[in-house]
Design a protein around this nucleic acid. Structure first.
Lengths: 198, 198
DNA sequence: TCGAAACGGAGAATTATTATCCGTTTCAAG
DNA sequence: CTTGAAACGGATAATAATTCTCCGTTTCGA
């Protein structure tokens, strides 16, 4: 592969990643090639379609999230590991609109490739394992089910931009996560509505 | 006004409201008239532009939210009133994507009319008053600022659809809100990061 | 030096969207 | 019932956006 070709594909991938993070999965190829400073033909010479490029980026991003989840699973303190997982999920989604789009999309439709679906399944497994470890250690309220966790994290992430004319940044997100984690610690309270399978 | 004209405008408004709730503010006029079962000309005979119709709907929806906030402000129990406010904000946003879009839009840009901006300002005032009343009554953790509240509610709302291939509905939203409210009650804990103005 | 590979920009092809024109139908007053 | 105006719906103009391709030119590296 020629050196300029290698450089071009790197420019395109980096630009696509930044553009997807800012604008979401619906970003146009025009926007990507403009940011990369290349022509449209250069993109299509390396990627058969817009969708193929998107999946390349998505696999990269989800892979990093899976790695963060693996690190959280190995934390010696079960609650700290759980908190790390929630923070990682929230941070990744709030800094990457494309990832947020992908996680919100229904896994069956939305045309995700098998590889992306497999990466999501792996992430789901980590969430389940980390949550159940914390619950079994008695540091997490027992009436929380692991399926609630992606939503808690997604919720904390969804609010980093704007709401009602107010702005919350990274600091605001951390405050919301702190409130949530306070509410999630096992300290003996009223059970949640729709109680656990016991 | 002729009877068929009155009926038409009602059909259009109802269809627009439903379509905006489901698809957000970017819904097309085609979708609206298709749902209403009228021709495009009927829409444009009553509303000078797509934007004018959107603002009519938005004022209606925000007005209902303001009414709910007023009811919460009059609750005898300051914490119950606060909880009602959070639940109303979350429910409204989770059942109406258009409202969610509008609240997330920056108030200065986004081309909201003066009337819509005024309605938002009123809603903000209610949030501030209800939050400060609960805090001064000592039932809400003192390190929470009122500006955090729309984000907490928006966060709880943002997660009612899908995440990581999992689905959470109304029940899931209520669980998340319950966790948050548990974390928000004043019971003497570690202060939040980025502590209050004191 | 030179052939092949890569490049960028113009643009084809398609799709979507807002808004309007116009022939036809429906309302309701006399 | 008659009749004129008001309202209607569908076709469609006008515009914009998007994905992807063709082709003449430039750049790499043996």
């Amino acid at each position: 592969m020629r050196s300029d070709a290698r450089r071009s594909v790197e420019l395109v991938v980096a630009a696509a990643r930044a553009a997807i993070a800012e604008q979401g999965l619906s970003v146009s190829t025009n926007e990507i090639v403009k940011r990369a400073g290349v022509g449209p033909a250069t993109l299509y010479r390396r990627f058969p379609s817009r969708q193929a490029l998107l999946e390349t980026i998505l696999l990269e991003v989800v892979g990093e999230l899976v790695a963060a989840a693996e690190a959280a699973a190995e934390s010696p303190d079960p609650f700290a590991g759980f908190a790390d997982l929630v923070r990682a999920l929230a941070a990744a989604q709030s800094t990457n609109k494309g990832l947020s789009d992908a996680l919100a999309a229904e896994s069956d439709s939305a045309g995700h490739s098998d590889a992306v679906r497999a990466a999501f399944a792996g992430l789901r497994d980590h969430v389940r394992r980390i949550t159940e470890r914390a619950r079994e250690a008695g540091v997490l309220r027992a009436d929380l089910v692991w399926q609630d966790v992606p939503f808690l994290a997604g919720a904390a992430a969804g609010m980093s931009t704007r709401c009602l004319g107010l702005g919350a940044g990274k600091a605001g997100r951390e405050r919301v996560i702190a409130v949530m984690l306070d509410g999630l610690r096992e300290t003996g309270r009223e059970p949640l509505p729709g109680s656990p399978p016991s």
